[in-house]
Design a protein around this nucleic acid. Structure first.
Lengths: 261, 261
DNA sequence: GCATAGAATTGATCTGGATCAATCCTAAAT
DNA sequence: ATTTAGGATTGATCCAGATCAATTCTATGC
């Protein structure tokens, strides 16, 4: 099970041979539980380990000189926590769990050795970093160019698609373990204003969000409100469903999880 | 000369053997001139070519549904224009020249073959993408968390450091071929407001900017105004000076090009 | 059931940047 | 020298979001 999360993720981009899969299985060993709000890596650390997030949510963030925290990425189950290992001698950002969860640690040296000997794996990993970059670009566009309402809508769309890709959306509902303050830090908005935008979205019958459960009521409406481009995550093939979270997809041609009409 | 821009850039991150260098020299052949404002790749294209920017400036940008343009990266001489070739079957953003300049085209297949057979080169290229990502993160922080004044200052700091790294800063002066409207599109600000922030910076004796020439008068002051972290670009070793632009560095220990006191 | 603490919500007010609208510069073209 | 066009600058006003300040929920734990 454990290794498969990684294999499955990478195989989505680049076909991996059986050998490659065995290699990956070998490096991703024991799963460890991690506590809510646990710092996985701190800004300034010399990263020596790649984390594979098996369960739970995490964030990448940077602290501004005035102490404000800017969230620069949201990591979902199946995401690779830090390949930056390969260049950064000093992390330029921190990574912290948002919820309790489970991770697998992969030491830097293991990772480097594998990459050196398995071009297909290297390429697949590289691809994941390029996808991360595409998401980051879209976040920049979001914060730089959209108003608060569209901005919130856009983030919800993105998370909905990404959660759908890993099989964590059921009937238009998903867990969204961010407080409104957290959302604000990801969007460059005040918690108060996030709240107002959310209630506006609720008022228009697009979504519902309470008790950390997001429900999409009108996906098309939300997409329109956000100016969201469903193609932007560069999904090649939809990820196969994952272990215990899995749920058969009802419609293999749909790019987005269906929203309940 | 031509090949060396690439070699030099990559060698900065990962030591390349003579063989590797020969390989790189072989793939980066003829230099072509490109016109000002030439679109290198358009959003939606299936990218088939990597561009190496030899001379001139370019931008990565995305167009919002309402037609606004958000600049998501600024490319300087020596930058690799698009490795995204490797994943994206559809470009999620466009790339356009800002000035006239010179480029080298490298076909996707060539690139893929080289990468497959030269792990060191692959790793070096991967590194460049991770550095790009670090810059992107900082841009997000900039737009999401800083006020207009610090935001402008921060971009100027970044460009100053990057230009210094490729030997294009002389006595605290550099070319900056962006209009104030362009700066606004990179920063999520109005041209009018960019203008006001610039004159504020000028008023405090930090910089001067006219006729597309930026002059840093008080680097420490600018860094302080920006909340800039000089380490953020992850420079491992300073890039060696490049061809005709080069100028011996006066102080090998300085991280930043000196500003004239 | 009651207390507690972390969130969400709501209202009132303020302000950093946006907008709108003229000029003003400056370099290249005639 | 004069026109022209792309930028820069300046001033006046507006408004989306920030701030400040209470409440109100809601899930705990006792």
């Amino acid at each position: 099970m454990t290794s498969n999360a990684l294999t499955r993720k990478l195989d989505r981009w680049e076909h991996l041979s059986d050998d490659d899969q065995v290699t990956l299985a070998a490096i991703s060993g024991r799963i460890e539980p991690v506590a809510r709000h646990k710092q996985l890596i701190e800004e300034g650390d010399d990263p020596r380990i790649v984390f594979l997030l098996i369960e739970g949510w995490a964030i990448r963030y940077k602290i501004l000189p005035d102490g404000k925290r800017q969230i620069v990425a949201i990591l979902l189950p199946g995401d690779l926590c830090d390949i930056h290992v390969f260049i950064l001698d000093r992390m330029d950002h921190g990574i912290a769990m948002l919820t309790a969860g489970k991770i697998v640690r992969i030491p830097k040296d293991t990772m480097l050795a594998v990459v050196d000997q398995n071009p297909a794996i290297a390429r697949a990993l590289w691809w994941t970093t390029l996808v991360d970059e595409a998401v980051l670009r879209e976040w920049l566009v979001n914060v730089g160019g959209r108003n608060a309402y569209a901005r919130v809508a856009h983030l919800l769309c993105e998370l909905y698609v990404r959660m759908g890709n890993v099989g964590l959306v059921t009937d238009g509902r998903m867990s969204l373990p961010l407080t409104q303050a957290d959302l604000g830090q990801a969007l460059g908005l005040t918690p108060v204003h996030v709240n107002r935008m959310l209630s506006q979205l609720r008022g228009k019958g697009l979504v519902t969000f309470r008790a950390f459960q997001l429900r999409i009521l009108d996906l098309d409406g939300l997409i329109a409100a956000a100016g969201f481009d469903p193609g932007y995550l560069h999904g090649k093939r939809p990820e196969r469903t994952i272990g215990s979270w899995s749920r058969p997809r009802r419609n293999s041609t749909a790019k987005l999880p269906e929203s309940p009409a």
